[in-house]
Design a protein around this nucleic acid. Structure first.
Lengths: 159, 159
DNA sequence: TCAAATAGTATTGTATACAATTAAATTGTC
DNA sequence: GACAATTTAATTGTATACAATACTATTTGA
């Protein structure tokens, strides 16, 4: 007999993560309001502060976002003075994203702000690390299953 | 001296969650492709399968989404035959979201499909429960801090 | 009772996301 | 060197998200 197990919203890990993600988003959006940065704009800057310049493609790999998302996002960051977009001279296909002097100058101010807000969360380094480790495991599983999908024909995810 | 701690993308809990959320989204979107359901549409149906009819407001509380998101989403679900939107006769302000016969008929098929995909993830109930508990803690912290923000003037999050 | 406040939904505007397509530049192969 | 295949961005179209506003129906208070 194929008894079907009910799927309850509150028992779904995906929903917990989805909901936590949105809350984090708002949290940082508020925290970064003085800089008029959205959360995705902020993580783009984080990646660039670590290692600029980057091509759109490289940034996309780092943030797991494609050009359809990044191109308009970077245009907005450019308009607000954080980055410049220059076509590479050695390979005209790529666009290099450079940080402006303003972005470099404001880096520590943003770092500090984020540091303050993280303190407010009151989570220990161990707690954070444990949670992140678990999330990495989940992500690895999701990647593996998505990859499997391309090979396995029995439980084919894609229509 | 105010030494500023660098903020590294890969050490950010928010980014782990953000990235995991997107991956889950794709995972379910693929899994539900036979039903042509997006992830947010799917969780709306989950809530309704548990307890329909619901007003837009009630559904919004359940999913933590507002009418700006739900109204168009529900119109799409209506267009595809999953729900009906009927203005309440007792209170003309509210719109009741009912499940169609098709939605009721397809419920178990969707439940089953989701069950299969969760099995693919290969996570134990304990693992899932632990992770969800931790996420609930984080969300509670975020809520508390956001609420604090409205009172505390010293580290004011909002500009 | 009726003006003011409140509640519920819809609309508008801005900003992601991402699939699919297009366009341009580069590379590999003969 | 020609040219097909590949790489990289940009564009287009659809679907969230959400703040802010508008609009209507209901409730409340003087």
């Amino acid at each position: 007999m194929s008894e079907v197990t009910p799927v309850l919203l509150d028992e779904q890990l995906c929903f917990s993560i989805y909901s936590a993600s949105k809350k984090f988003n708002h949290f940082y959006q508020s925290a970064l309001a003085p800089f008029k940065l959205t959360y995705p704009q902020y993580i783009a800057l984080l990646a660039l502060w670590e290692d600029a310049p980057l091509t759109v493609h490289q940034l996309g790999q780092r943030l797991e976002l494609d050009s359809g998302t990044l191109t308009p996002l970077l245009k907005r960051l450019e308009k607000q003075g954080w980055v410049t977009r220059v076509r590479s001279r050695t390979d005209e296909r790529q666009v290099l994203i450079h940080l402006t002097a303003m972005a470099t100058a404001k880096r520590d101010e943003v770092y500090q702000r984020i540091g303050q807000c993280q303190t407010l969360l009151g989570m220990s380094d161990e707690e954070i690390e444990t949670l992140m480790t678990d999330l990495i495991t989940v992500k690895a599983q999701l990647d593996q299953v998505s990859h499997q999908r391309l090979i396995d024909k029995q439980v084919n995810l894609q229509k």
